[in-house]
Design a binder for these strands. Structure first.
Lengths: 211, 211
DNA sequence: TCAAAAGTGTTAGATTTACACCCATGA
DNA sequence: TCATGGGTGTAAATCTAACACTTTTGA
């Protein structure tokens, strides 16, 4: 299985990739992957692999699909099942990241990757983007507390288009599960912006979400 | 791989299922499936399997995903990749259908199926339904010539809700790629209804589809 | 004092929904 | 002649998109 780890940083949607450490394709840019053991489900394998890479559990993960061209792997015949995961970049221990030799790359500036990994990322992004339209999964890419501007930038990065600030905030106000706190973030501006948080409970009570 | 063959007949969305002819699970209701050969891609395997079952090629097919619980197969460890296909029921040779021992069952009245096949169908339906909202793939489930009432019934069956006749027809009129012919179908009513056809070319020229 | 991000409403246009009657025909 | 499905338009409501200025504060 191969995993597409999405993160959001500096206003950009990013993906974790690294240099491949084994043959065939040693040294090429690649997604992080692993193998499904005989005694684990493919979902478990994906969770295990992502946890191994990031040290994080209980992430939001979804299957992207199976990739099975005959010669997608230059070595032997391998069918891979891709998964994507959403993480908050700040939760990823820098040391662990370096140990695995992976880095965050802007999804708009990806190099040519090993095998069909570019295609996997394209499909994962499409699915994630669709999901984001119908469910508030975007919060998985942000810290627990975030400003409305950060949230807007996230939606803009994912959809690849700018949004109108006033219309965006109007929509957010209608969502009861985005709670305003009394906390203020001053890192992004002199004036400071209110911090908001996602209330999972409220979301599940009132699932009329539509962005 | 397992295939979910969708058909539309008598105003209902249907799926092809049959009694399993091998152990484990012999005699249980099941989807039709096959195995991916070492020298074919998973897409090719799906096409081959569906062609074997229906005698039809160049069908609209899409991958549903990989299913990989450890004990989804009561025998040995098997991971299955599910695909769905859309066919026009009338194109399916009755003889071939009987030879394979499969039958059309209303998707609302499915029995308990072998292994995780019910789940596969649920997911396939969801994907197909989403696809139908953004692309006019529904025509694959109808004869080349169809009446607007047939088309409306199809959308109703897939979405599971009734639609307003006038609003539906208004939307269809906006789609240039649905061509009215001068032919009239009298099988559905005494008065007769105009037959329409899907113009693939017009669709690709003007892909502003939205239902 | 000024640059930079935060915050805030209104209006026009587009889209969506609800709704009811006449037509043509075969039985 | 009547039961059955085919065919058609309008108006209200809702949703979407466009748009500009004031506030706060650190440098």
């Amino acid at each position: 299985m191969d995993c597409i780890i999405f993160g959001f940083d500096e206003g950009k949607l990013k993906v974790l990739i690294g240099r491949r450490q084994m043959d065939p394709g040693r040294g090429e840019w690649s997604l992080y992957g692993g193998f499904v053991a005989a005694d684990e489900s493919i979902n478990d394998a994906a969770n295990r692999t992502v946890a191994e890479l990031t040290g994080l559990n209980n992430l939001y993960m979804r299957q992207v699909g199976a990739f099975g061209s005959i010669d997608r792997d230059p070595g032997e015949r391998v069918i891979s099942i891709a998964y994507y995961a959403l993480i908050n970049v700040k939760d990823y221990d820098e040391r662990l990241r370096l140990d695995h030799g992976v880095e965050w790359v802007n999804i708009e500036e990806l190099p040519k990757l090993y095998s069909d990994h570019n295609e996997m990322i394209r499909k994962a992004r499409k699915l994630m983007c669709q999901k984001l339209r119908t469910e508030p999964v975007g919060f998985r890419l942000l810290p627990d507390l975030f400003t409305l501007t950060q949230l807007q930038r996230l939606y803009e990065a994912v959809n690849g288009e700018e949004l109108d600030k006033r219309n965006f905030r109007k929509r957010i106000k209608d969502m009861d599960f985005i709670e305003k706190t009394e906390l203020i973030d001053k890192t992004g501006s002199k004036r400071g912006a209110f911090l908001y948080r996602f209330n999972k409970r409220a979301y599940h009570d009132d699932p009329n979400f539509k962005l």
